[in-house]
Nucleic acid binder design. Structure first.
Lengths: 211, 211
DNA sequence: TTTTTATTACCTGATATCAGGTAAAAGCAA
DNA sequence: TTGCTTTTACCTGATATCAGGTAATAAAAA
């Protein structure tokens, strides 16, 4: 008999944990050895226990799933990590995979999709649920995988923009020339390839890049 | 023997549904008669079936839980409706209860909390999970309770604004006059007392009022 | 040390937004 | 039926944004 994959579920919602473990109880090949509600608890657990597979929520309190994934993979590259969330923001998924994640499943995925993904991930594939795949496989400027970061000054200005400040008000507040702020604004919009501040802020907030 | 409460679970995440029905299977007093993934499906279902208790996610596609609750309560005030979500935004909870909701539970609540709340709700109480109660019972700047809501059209326009569309583009997309869209924009900004679209979007996204 | 990035700043012209006003028709609720 | 809200639409003028340039200085990375 083949060894079972020792699996840990990490989610801050007990109900979700219960749902997933119910789903996994059908599996012959995996065995849920622990259910945790935080990233810190997971880091503790893998220090002293053998783990083969982790199913984790991306939006966790304190440490988010993306950073958590990176930390774990650095020390234990063999652990298979599958991320889950309610939204399929392209950049989130990309970051997760770049940090070593083995797959990304939307919580709105069907049971079949879930099972399928977990099976394939165990076989070494990088897996995505249907909706996620639809989002990330869109044409979408093949190079924009890695989201550019804002410089210090650009962050200052973006924050004030999100508060509804005008170019002139920002210039006054930061003791800069109106024209300088204008240049920064243009650079920021260009950086994220957005048309105006409205789209910029939507992008930044949805990707947790603002504050 | 007392009659069992016919219960419907509404959530767009199959896993959550499974988790909750697992939880409810321990209950002698309730019986899960249907599991649905959308508000529309629920409206259909209650037209032709008897329902005593509804457990619904607040963030549902198409119709949100708050509007859904209102609609149902108008026609079937006897149905007990408990809302669930991942966040406990004060204004959301308030709106839900004002629309007739019988309780609000965070998905991060423990199983015991869940059971407790459902029991009490059946007994006629308006119930909240611990974390929710902590949030809503805070003093809170007495005036900012009620956040104005957007009309259907205003929502359409706001969504397009968040995608960086210009007034003209929105007019074209919705088959409206440029001037009409301009009027809507002004009304929306006024409603939330913000200076421009940037501030509007920050406000809406931080309060989960946009999709 | 050379190169690149960040920050600062100026110029112009086209287009868009914002703020003020008004107002009619349709739909819903009291 | 009488109001209230929503949706539609028009007008004007002041500001603001966006997109296209260029360019010097400072700081950080190669």
């Amino acid at each position: 008999m083949t060894r079972k994959y020792k699996t840990v579920i990490v989610d801050d919602h007990p109900i979700v944990i219960s749902g997933i473990s119910g789903l996994l109880s059908d599996f012959q090949i995996v065995e849920v050895v622990e259910k945790l509600q935080s990233g810190v608890a997971l880091l503790d657990y893998i220090e002293t226990n053998e783990v083969d597979l982790v199913l984790m929520d991306i939006f966790l309190p304190v440490i988010n799933g993306i950073d958590l994934c990176k930390t774990i993979k650095q020390k234990y590259p063999k652990i298979i990590i599958i991320g889950m969330s309610s939204q399929s923001e392209r950049s989130l998924v990309m970051q997760f995979v770049q940090n070593g994640g083995n797959g990304y499943i939307l919580k709105s995925a069907s049971f079949d999709e879930f099972k399928n993904c977990i099976h394939k991930a165990i076989d070494g594939e990088i897996v995505f649920s249907d909706e996620v795949r639809a989002v990330i496989s869109q044409p979408q400027s093949e190079d924009l995988d890695r989201i550019p970061s804002l410089s210090r000054r650009e962050k200052d200005i973006t924050l004030l923009l999100s508060k509804g400040k005008s170019t002139q008000e920002i210039a006054d507040e930061l003791f800069l020339s109106f024209l300088t702020v204008q240049t920064h604004r243009r650079n920021i919009l260009q950086k994220y390839k957005v048309k105006n501040v409205a789209e910029l802020i939507t992008f930044l907030l949805k990707n947790n890049l603002l504050n």
